[in-house]
Design a protein around this nucleic acid. Structure first.
Lengths: 178, 178
DNA sequence: CCTTCAGTGGCACTTGGTGCCACTAATGCG
DNA sequence: CGCATTAGTGGCACCAAGTGCCACTGAAGG
């Protein structure tokens, strides 16, 4: 798999020719499966988004908005213990390799849309209104911060970090009267 | 200037050769002034960051943390009325052209660091602790959301949008008890 | 058996980006 | 003034990502 090449040789130093050769396909065929080399670590992310959508919708309406988002966030990012190492390697690529970090922005747009849609539905606004967009952007930011800390600490639990990060943000507004 | 080419021909369709020719320099020389074509719309962003740093530091300690950030944010993004059109064109490129949006992530890292540093100093933590990082990420997200709305609405005031977006985020945590 | 069509991949081309090196002009020094 | 050094410039060759075009192959279907 291409992940092996990325971790051993480094992402930038691995050429598409090498990936294609390792996969036993032609270079031209590679680009029919992946729109770009940057998309390889992402896999079928769009499908994952449906999980997040469902998880958000499953939350009972009496749970406060940001609690609902926080809990869904933690659940969405839960991975089976056996797959933690792979998830770590994947996120390490996505968040630490500058080329991929930049590219990830485009993928995150779709993720934010899911959150914004949920907020809009809950608060009776349109998904592209300021509040849903601002909240979606903020939640994504908090998630990335949690992920970065998770990558820094081999023993850390991702769910705990996501929970902490969301609570820290909430607490930071504590002394604000508006 | 290169901006003219970008807005008339489109960013992706404008080649480096064309930019260099329009600027009356060689292609090789272009790459000595700009690390990449993507950096052209950014200009001297690092210098701008110092303005933000100073503005944050100038805020009296009795102002609550997120209020201080919000006010600095509004001030930092204030532009002279005469330069609004140019700022609009620039931000339109940066936030709407996918290539540039992706690239901007790398520039935003430096911006976040400024906020995280301020939060760390205020709360007695290290800049790379979870809370400062989470807050910095969130504030950046809120800013981008505000900018996107600003670009959508030709008559909108950027400062007002930034203020609103920050308040909306704060309010969204209102019903959370932790 | 022959036709059709989807999947494959070779080839050539464009473009961003880099290393190398030659050229030029300004500066500094005897 | 003449010469050496040096910074700035840019031409040239090269690499790698990505795309359009087209020929090939093999399976399905009449």
């Amino acid at each position: 798999m291409a992940f092996g090449l990325f971790t051993s040789r480094g992402f930038d130093a691995t050429t598409v020719d090498e990936i294609a050769a390792a996969a036993g396909i032609g270079r031209r065929t590679f680009f029919r499966y992946f729109p770009s080399k940057n998309d390889v670590p992402w896999g079928a992310f769009e499908d994952e988004l449906d999980r997040m959508r469902v998880r958000l919708k499953a939350c009972p309406p009496q749970v406060p908005l940001m609690d609902a988002i926080r809990l869904a966030l933690i659940d969405f990012n839960r991975v089976a213990p056996a797959q933690v190492p792979l998830h770590r390697r994947r996120m390490e690529l996505i968040l630490r390799v500058p080329t991929l970090l930049a590219h990830s922005t485009l993928r995150f747009t779709a993720w934010r849309a899911v959150v914004a849609e949920f907020v809009a539905e809950r608060t009776g606004r349109r998904p592209d209104d300021l509040a849903p967009q601002a909240i979606a952007h903020a939640v994504l930011g908090v998630s990335v911060a949690a992920y970065e800390h998770w990558l820094d600490d081999p023993d850390a639990d991702l769910g705990t970090l996501l929970d902490d990060a969301m609570r820290e943000l909430a607490a930071s507004f504590g002394s604000t009267l508006g």
